[in-house]
């Protein structure tokens, strides 16, 4: 009986190990392997993008979903310890894309429908493209038992009634949060005053922006800064599941901070031209009307001129981040940020 048990355990271990070795399976589409894709974003949207693309291209994508920060870390570690493992990566902020492109690690390509992309989204001199835009708003609970007033601007968030109930993502962990914090820095006239006032107001720091709307509904905090697309998805989810969403999005009087989500194809020595073409097809798909509509339905702003931006209310200013400035000053800014928020 003991021998049988030992045999069974050995068989189990060997079976698992051999199964692990076969993970990089090949698709039935004539290319040598599936495309490895790292993406950040809502799971339903990514699944929808994958299934729609594969309905015509075949089973060619192997997508792993990460948070913006995770995606950024992973791609960077890979680039520094060899070759980037992903064929395509989509999400996070332009800083990482600029850095990788400066190291000549991104594959050059031209969009098939580049003429339909609005001018403001066209990136010149870099080997990546902007796929969608998202807007940051202040979100708050609608439960008046928890919060009786509403802020109208970012500056209001330093008011005492929001002491210990306001949350924002930690800029030292989240790429989007870094963008928010640098915008606050730029908005305050290139000083840390606004960030200092938030710290004095006992701001709660979260690992990612994505967890803020959820945290407000949960009651973990009462208000925070979060992307508007999350509000769109939560509203749809609440309608679908028949509950009242106790969440409200406020467009700040200073304007809404715009975040862009790029995509890039990593250079890889052993990738065939045929597979690189499939990668380019997928990027084209992300910017096609079909791909953009899927993302628009999840709350993101399309970069195409033939899809209306119906999410942005009239009169709201859009604040664009100076990514080049943010990249050059990232180390100094993060050091100042840590001096304020880290203890």
């Amino acid at each position: 009986m003991k021998k049988i048990l030992i045999l069974c355990l050995t068989f189990f271990a060997l079976a698992t190990l051999s199964a692990c070795g076969k993970e990089k399976d090949t698709p039935e589409t004539g290319v040598e392997r599936k495309l490895v894709v790292y993406m950040s974003g809502p799971e339903n949207m990514i699944n929808s993008l994958e299934s729609t693309f594969e309905s015509t291209a075949g089973d060619v994508l192997d997508i792993t979903i990460y948070s913006c920060g995770q995606l950024r870390d992973k791609v960077w570690i890979e680039s520094q310890s060899g070759e980037i493992e992903a064929d395509i990566f989509f999400g996070s902020d332009p800083i990482i894309y600029n850095k990788l492109d400066n190291l000549n690690l991104l594959e050059p390509f031209t969009l098939t429908e580049s003429n339909i992309v609005k001018d403001k989204y066209i990136i010149e001199n870099h080997n990546y493209v902007i796929v969608v835009e998202r807007y940051l708003t202040i979100m708050k609970t609608t439960d008046t038992n928890r919060l009786t007033t509403s802020p109208t601007s970012y500056a209001d968030l330093g008011n005492s009634e929001y002491d210990s109930v306001f949350a924002m993502a930690d800029a030292s962990l989240s790429a989007t949060a870094f963008a928010v914090a640098s915008s606050f820095y730029e908005m305050s006239g290139f000083n840390m005053n606004l960030l200092n006032s938030l710290n004095d107001n006992n701001v709660i720091l979260t690992k990612s922006n994505g967890s803020i709307p959820s945290g407000i509904i949960d009651g973990t905090f009462d208000l925070g800064i979060a992307p508007y697309d999350a509000f769109v998805r939560l509203s749809k989810n609440a309608t679908k599941n028949d509950y009242e969403l106790e969440l409200e999005a406020i467009w700040p009087t200073e304007g809404t901070i715009s975040l862009i989500r790029p995509v890039a194809i990593a250079k890889q020595e052993d990738r065939s031209d045929a597979l690189t073409d499939v990668a380019k097809d997928f990027v084209d798909f992300l910017l096609s009307k079909q791909g953009q509509t899927i993302q628009f339905n999840s709350g993101f702003i399309s970069v195409r001129s033939d899809i209306n931006n119906s999410y942005l209310p009239a009169g709201v200013t859009v604040i664009n981040i100076d990514w080049d400035y943010a990249a050059i000053n990232e180390a100094t800014f993060k050091s100042n940020y840590e001096d304020i928020f880290k203890n």
């Binding site: 920060g69 950024r72 870390d73 960077w76 570690i77 990482i96 850095k99 949350a167 930690d170 030292s172 962990l173 989240s174 790429a175 710290n199 006992n202 709660i204 720091l205 979260t206 690992k207 990232e330 180390a331 993060k334 928020f341 880290k342 203890n343």
Partner: peptide, 19 residues
């Protein structure tokens, strides 16, 4: 982390994000 208090493990994670 929500109150900005770092220990060594969270600092390591944070340093990863600084690329």
């Amino acid at each position: 982390l929500p109150i900005g208090t770092e220990v060594l493990t969270t600092r390591i994670y944070g340093s990863l994000s600084s690329l």
